[in-house]
Amino acid sequence: MVKASNNTVLHVADVHKTFGGLHALADVDLAIEEGKTHAIIGPNGAGKSTLLNVIVGKLAPTRGTVVLDGEVLTGKSPHEINQMGVARVFQTPEIFPDLSVFDNVMAPAFAKRDGSFKINIFNSLQSEKDIAQEAEEIIVDFGLEPMINTHAGALSRGHKRRLELAMCLIQKPRILLLDEPTAGMSRHDTNTTIDLLKKIKSTGMTKIIIEHDMHVVFSLADKVSVLAQGRIIAEGSPDEIRANPKVKEAYLGESSE
């Protein structure tokens, strides 16, 4: 069992998740450190998304707890967990397809400022200058301003992913969870995303990133955990992971390098 140290932000403690007879997660123990980018890699069906689902409150673990800054997240609902500072980019983009790109980015800013429920009827959206400006800035940063008034549902997959990332970042989360942020992207878009993520990394934001693309993992991660069949089979720096024969066998395949 990994001991949570002083600079641990998120501690996944001994988490199990079973679906019927399937052990999607078993004995998963992770300590995510302040300001670090922690990559989780593993073959399809290893349980990576399930782990994030447990963290954000979409799924209740069969056993174990998740702790953020000393506060237990397990048992809380997704909106409470977000309000505590957990934001997530999903494997398939989860955005508001019927709202404009602008509104998509404004909504999370409202959640951050006003909390999980507030009846704000007397102001019009236009009169919320601070939030509008904040949203505009991040939209420009992300190169989405040509489509600021477009319905988000009409965006390309790559733009949807970038939008979702913007929606998470405007909340300045304590920890950002990224589920395959470059899946299905062209090499060019992938590189753009890597640059973007590097920029985020330089702000010192703590991140968990799930990624299949080793190029992405090795250029971003400070630490890598390898998940296979619900278990963490190896953990270490990117270089250690690359050299680990167990990982090569289970995941990278013998023909690696």
Binding site: N82, L99, A111
Partner: peptide, 28 residues
């Protein structure tokens, strides 16, 4: 007023993607 307010936008957000609203921190 409701339609053009932040509150109205939240309602439209619920229609568009209620799960996303929850993960965005709203108690729908």
């Amino acid at each position: 007023k409701i339609t053009s307010s932040p509150f109205g936008m939240m309602l439209k957000g619920i229609k568009s993607n209620e799960d996303r609203m929850n993960y965005t921190g709203f108690n729908t």
